[in-house]
Design a binder for these strands. Structure first.
Lengths: 345, 345
DNA sequence: GTGAAAGCGCTAACAC
DNA sequence: GTGTTAGCGCTTTCAC
């Protein structure tokens, strides 16, 4: 079946008034039907729907947005990267937005762009959105924008002046703590940390979780090595770490770096897990299939996106209701074979 | 600095008429300035800009879209997956769309959704977009929609009735052919293929490339094993393939499956590359760091996205001009250590 | 070069 | 339950 769809000045698209004429009702009644408003008799509703179907009517969202001041769309600001974490979060957000009956607008921020998140948010506001999701932002200094739509920040402290700034943590510190404690429980004297870039809040949270685990157990805190999330940076860090015979356990801030790290370790003749245990973070789909299969911590991306969007949509639609209490997703440590007790050497 | 931005019925946002009053010009002149129309004196332009700045004016895109019938936005239809290929393409598209001065709307199609791509396209049209990008679609049968905006299809045959359907191939068949020929050149009698799900055009193209290489060299065409892009499916395929001692070289349709395959091979006691050579597809960032480092073929995602968007934007803005000839991005085979000549056994 | 008037296709507010 | 009347903030058309 071939249906005609389209939009544009001369495109002879039927409008609600045309539907009204065919159905023999007023234009406003057509509007009522398409907005599921009450007080429309079942009979009228049926006639309107039939007429709309017959004409191939589709509502013009621009006109609706102009008249109502609402767009039924949500904007998301992401880092423009195909990294597993941010990409998964984006897919989760898309799904949750669609399920809530909203449209999605996406703006990426570019690393090093002076406008950064602030510019991205302004461009979304200009486009017209009812709410904004900021996904895993990096710290760009105090670049506050006053926005009058609700803002949901995923994986960072609230940093925007908005009527409602909602935050859903990825519970990264708890997850990082669990990873570190797993290594400690195995009998390692201490745990080294291959951190993510500290401009990312997500990276800081993981570092905090690692540090708090070490402190809680009264262990020495070795110097932190910082990577940039990439396997290359993990590899480079691994070359340094491999030279240090005191290193028996490393917690990497993501799986990509963990894989690079392991490669460097192996090339330096240090076996994993016999000589050095490694735990990653994210549970990328490949984690179970690299050599050795990677012990890691699963990030509940979908749950975070869903949970967050529930808050955001409520803030948009019922601004006065109290936000429901946030439910922290469960910590999931996936133990595979890249970790083992230290072998006395 | 805290700037007030926002939109909405009661939000006391300044409009172009306010700017006009402050600048002492007509509302239409403000419109001219913001649309970079000619015939505005430099002096007037400066005054308008100053007034806008003073009031914190931002144009209302919904009103513009309603009046002009154009939205300056582009919609993209993607599969909702964080797989490296689709995710990279999406990021490339976002960047290219932003560079062209358009906004981006995203709709995912869900596997198994009856509406599928057709429904996604209709929802974009309804939202109002000036052009549509369909990224790596799967074959859903003939579900044609007549759309009156230009459509760009990335990585599949044109399948939509639209004023302009543009296609930019990922040249997947040429790339797959190069991968296969690399293995043949190494001295392997033939090459097995671990294919992607055949509903994806991208998977079919790779299979075609593999097949044509085999035919061109007069080699036997072994039965195809089909996976679903995931490492798990590669692993399962690997268990079957490992049992067959005739298998000395495998071309996997993506890197994730290649990694799963290698793991299965190793577990079955077959060494890579000594007993079996493996080449992947995509060059995921991890490819150089897995064990053994993966020989693979690099997909030029950014180039494809940029190239495609150039076509699309031209089709939107200058519908009558001839589309510039498509430039095929170069084939890049990355040889690492998962491939080697067969060892006579 | 600039301005006045008339919509774009909807929703809001209120009448009936 | 349903219709009427005004806009929403821009662009278009055409006059000057």
């Amino acid at each position: 079946m071939t249906r005609m769809v389209g939009r544009g000045r001369n495109a002879a698209m039927p409008r609600s008034a045309d539907v009204a004429r065919v159905a023999g009702v007023s234009q406003k009644t057509v509007s009522r039907v398409f907005n599921d408003e009450p007080y429309v008799s079942a009979d009228v509703r049926r006639r309107v729907l039939a007429a709309a179907e017959e004409l191939g009517y589709r509502m013009n969202h621009a006109a609706r947005a102009l008249a109502s001041g609402r767009t039924r769309s949500i904007g998301v600001v992401t880092l423009g990267t195909a990294l597993y974490g941010p990409a998964s979060l984006l897919m989760g957000v898309e799904r949750a937005v669609r399920d809530a009956g909203y449209a999605l607008r996406v703006v990426n921020t570019v690393e090093g762009d002076p406008a950064g998140v602030t510019g991205a948010v302004e461009s979304l506001i200009e486009q017209g959105v009812d709410g904004i999701v900021i996904s895993e932002p990096i710290d760009e200094g105090a670049a506050a924008v006053r926005v009058d739509v609700p803002v949901l920040v995923l994986g960072a402290p609230p940093a925007f002046a908005a009527p409602q700034v909602l935050t859903v943590g990825v519970a990264a510190d708890a997850l990082a703590r669990a990873a570190t404690e797993h290594l400690l429980a195995l009998g390692h004297a201490t745990v080294h940390h291959l951190a993510g870039p500290q401009r990312w809040y997500a990276a800081r949270d993981r570092l905090d979780g690692w540090r708090s685990a070490l402190r809680a157990h009264g262990r020495a805190e070795p110097p932190v090595v910082e990577g940039d999330w990439s396997a290359v940076s993990g590899y480079e860090a691994g070359r340094k770490l491999a030279a240090d015979r005191d290193v028996t356990a490393v917690f990497a801030a993501n799986d990509d770096m963990a894989v690079g790290l392991i490669r460097a370790l192996l090339e330096a003749g240090r076996r994993v897990p016999e000589d050095v245990s490694v735990v990653g973070f994210d549970d990328i789909p490949l984690a179970a299939y690299v050599t050795p299969p990677l012990t890691t911590v699963r990030q509940p991306f979908d749950a975070v996106a869903q949970e967050g969007l529930k808050l955001l949509v409520q803030a948009i639609e019922k601004p006065d209701a109290d936000p429901p209490p946030a439910v922290d997703p469960p910590v999931e440590l996936i133990v595979r074979t890249s970790t083992a007790p230290p072998t006395g050497r």
